[in-house]
Amino acid sequence: MDYLLHILILIGIYVILSLSLNLIAGYTGILSIAHAAFYGVGAYVAALMALKLGTPFLANVICAIILSGLLGALVGIPSLRIRDDYFVIATFAFQVITFSVLNNWVSFTSGPMGLPGIPQPRIFGLQVSSHWQFLVLVGICAILVFLAARRIVESPFGRVLKAIREDEVFALAAGKNVAAYKVLVFVIGAAMASVAGALYATYITFIDPTSFTVMESIFIISIVIIGGAGNLWGSVLGAAVLVILPEALRFVGLPSSVAANVRQIIYGALLVAFMMWRPQGFIGEYTFRKGDQG
């Protein structure tokens, strides 16, 4: 039973990550491979504050959101001026830098040894410790993120995001400050990802930098693309499918040493297959293939 709950909790965390990346990549059309970095910032801020300062969970989450948002602005403001492909490289650079800092600033982050014994959250006197309780907490956060994202994409603000995705020149000619919108949505996405990080850190109670590598970023991108870019339910569906899929492989009876590699191969193959035959994902509204855009 706990195993099943564990899977659901992980799905909830990845729903938050993919929804937030969907706002950036699926709705606004700017592909970022720095999402795991913001996820990691959230996790480390929440973990370090809980371990070193003993501050309550909600305060840690708020700090994680603020710091991650600020970092998003720091990365976004200079790099969103450059064009599509170069922006991807800029976010890749930020991803690598973040990992290096987490991995090498040993006195502060414990480096590769990671941070063990992260206290579980206590919210308004309620201790969250069992799987059930975590599922409720993660579920509430995922629903809040979903509602916030839905409000954004259904508003006139969201209409501008879609216009930027489809035709930046038109958006400019319509009097929209395209650069400001891009930075803003990048900051929102970064802030949301940090919430997932804080949940992950306090749930697993141990984090190390290997959870927040570029591979993780690509995994989140896979969820967005396979689920369906530009559709919020696509992110929910994608997270469920891609979290459950490797678990299903466990029951095939592969030895664990092989299973891990098979998992990577399957993600890669799925991504290629979807890009070739179903670039809009399961239920998406946007493809990253240039020729498909009208």
Binding site: F157, A163, D167, G175
Partner: peptide, 25 residues
């Protein structure tokens, strides 16, 4: 021609109005 082809005729023209409060986050 530049229009947002995957938005409706109505949405295309709605995009063009200036000073929309709903466009501020």
């Amino acid at each position: 021609l530049r229009l947002i082809k995957r938005l409706t005729v109505l949405d295309n023209s709605l995009l063009c109005y200036q000073h929309q409060p709903g466009e501020r986050l």
